[in-house]
Design a protein around this nucleic acid. Sequence first.
DNA 1: CTTGACCCTCAAGTCCGCTTGAAGGTGTGT
DNA 2: ACACACCTTCAAGCGGACTTGAGGGTCAAG
Lengths: 162, 162
Amino acid sequence: MAGLLIGDIAERAGLSAPTIRYYESIGLLAPPPRSATGYRRYTDTTVEELRFIKKAQSLGFSLEEIREILALSRAGDTPCSHVLDLSRRHLAAVEERIRQLTRFRDQLASEVKKWDGEREPTCRGLCQIIASAEEREPAVGDIELHLGMRRTGQEKTRTQRR
Amino acid sequence: MAGLLIGDIAERAGLSAPTIRYYESIGLLAPPPRSATGYRRYTDTTVEELRFIKKAQSLGFSLEEIREILALSRAGDTPCSHVLDLSRRHLAAVEERIRQLTRFRDQLASEVKKWDGEREPTCRGLCQIIASAEEREPAVGDIELHLGMRRTGQEKTRTQRR
DNA sequence: CTTGACCCTCAAGTCCGCTTGAAGGTGTGT
DNA sequence: ACACACCTTCAAGCGGACTTGAGGGTCAAG
């Protein structure tokens, strides 16, 4: 009787029950105690954890990173250069992304505004904005963040033949 | 003899040969002429197209959207409300994302700065930043852009029982 | 004429974050 | 007793953007 069913915390945290089982299966969430008949029994703290996960996710952390963060945070308040590293890498990635998106937004906004008025929108306009966008050269050791940057595959260098 | 091999344009555009074949297979890239022995023969304009694709991608357009844009752009300079729609939706998504990332950056930056000085970094700090982040409620009709926002599953409402 | 670096196709695999389905057990209201 | 909304596990599927592998052909240099 004591404890919330999986559907209850799913509803409170705003995700589905299967998702919660999935999180447990990948070690993101600790397995909760079970009732005599095998039902998972949760407490409100799990709801908090789930909300934390959702927020971290929306900020661009992957489930893997969140798992790490949660593990570290459970380990306590000890100094932790790893967390600092993680944060710094995120910060750099976020700043670069903001810079890039801002430039894109400015161009796109001015184009949309131009169209909103009298002119007929043409595809050329949009294409030119894209074409003139600064190319982002993914550097070695680039951040593997999920901030909308697609991973770029490794480019095997061709051996010169001709 | 005339024309670049797939490996050549791959190298010049900065992607892999299989990727280029893949793009062709999904109709993103027009099938090039072939040599007598079946080798794809490209020109420099394909390299330009591939670079365009890369840029559009880095700005958050999906391959599907890029396909659309390219199709429209090939159709010429004709008025096109679809492009305007597409641009406006992108603009809204980009602005929301910038807003969100900026808030996150500010918090993260101040925390990292605090740690950079004298204090010992703790995991709690990072966790608190995340926990205090504003939750993004994905609205109905939310833009399906790939700007780092994860899709949220539909939440089936539980029927009240107890 | 062999070696080795390219090219071809087609199918299948990968990663992430889930969702969906099948097959079955539980708990409560009527 | 029955319906019905829950719960369980395990397996498979999905979407996007690729990558990898198998099996085989081509072309230029040594």
